[in-house]
Design a protein around this nucleic acid. Structure first.
Lengths: 144, 144
DNA sequence: TCTTAAATAGGAATTATTATTATTTAGAAT
DNA sequence: ATTCTAAATAATAATAATTCCTATTTAAGA
């Protein structure tokens, strides 16, 4: 689903967050950029459109978005935080050779796992969600 | 499988790594500590047994172990790196309320997912492995 | 148009991790 | 047991990612 500035403004209003140009551009940049970027990568992209934005502002806005459920931090081998817009339930494909990460949508597989975990309860643990991190090699370049 | 210092020394020799007291104690600490600790947590634990160890040494040894396949970094919401001894294939349970992470062994579920991914190839991607990150609440305290 | 709480810019501080260099040491060779 | 040396470590500085602080700006309600 295409995240237009209008939709972003609407969403921010729904959440009682002031609609600032910085907030709009950060969320749009993240929505348009499916590479699960770090804060620094988002900053470098955003600064092209907003030369005065401060890196602290980027971190602050991302943290606000995470707290409000618009954005999530994705779990990866953690030397830097990476971000993703919250969208339909999905998983991730991680390249073993690079930092590339792609979304992986598979409702069927998610259903299989979800049902399995419902039927086979984990002792001492109440399941509330899961993410499948699949690692391997990207064989076709998306850029070709 | 209990990781004794003897087994650790054996493993290091197999990999042509010098057997130093620091290396032994770090691997033992990690093997005895199933909490998927950060480097800082490992350092705080190890320094009780080796008061002169340097934090740089801990990072260095962990990196060596990761490179050699003895230890892996686990993927989590990445503000700090977390480590785990490589053992039988397993997944992780993440607490939504705390930093607690526990191992989750389930050969059956892993088999289901593995077979699904074999049968249903992901276009442009060659699967080599996967980890299931399950989040929720720990309802029974392991410490009780 | 005015007001003000919220947000941002700018930059300092903190923290996690890596790099550098001098010194120590594991272990092979004798 | 001793010697030698490449590998490893200690100590500390440097770097990078992230957070914090404060003065200023601004979104939006009145």
């Amino acid at each position: 689903m295409m995240m237009t500035p209008e939709l972003i403004r609407k969403k921010l209003k729904e959440l009682n967050l002031k609609v600032t140009p910085q907030r709009v551009v950060i969320l749009k940049t993240l929505a348009d950029n499916k590479s699960h970027p770090t804060a620094e990568e988002i900053y470098r992209e955003v600064i092209k459109k907003q030369p005065n934005i401060a890196v602290g502002t980027v971190y602050n806005i991302l943290e606000t978005y995470v707290n409000r459920g618009i954005v999530e931090k994705i779990s990866s081998i953690g030397d830097k935080m990476r971000y993703d817009v919250v969208s339909e339930d999905h998983h991730h494909l991680f390249s073993k050779n690079s930092d590339e990460i792609e979304d992986y949508f598979n409702v069927e597989l998610a259903g299989i796992i979800g049902r399995y975990l419902e039927v086979n309860e984990i002792p001492g643990f109440k399941v509330e969600g899961f993410k499948l991190n699949i690692s391997g090699e990207f064989t076709k370049r998306g850029k070709n």
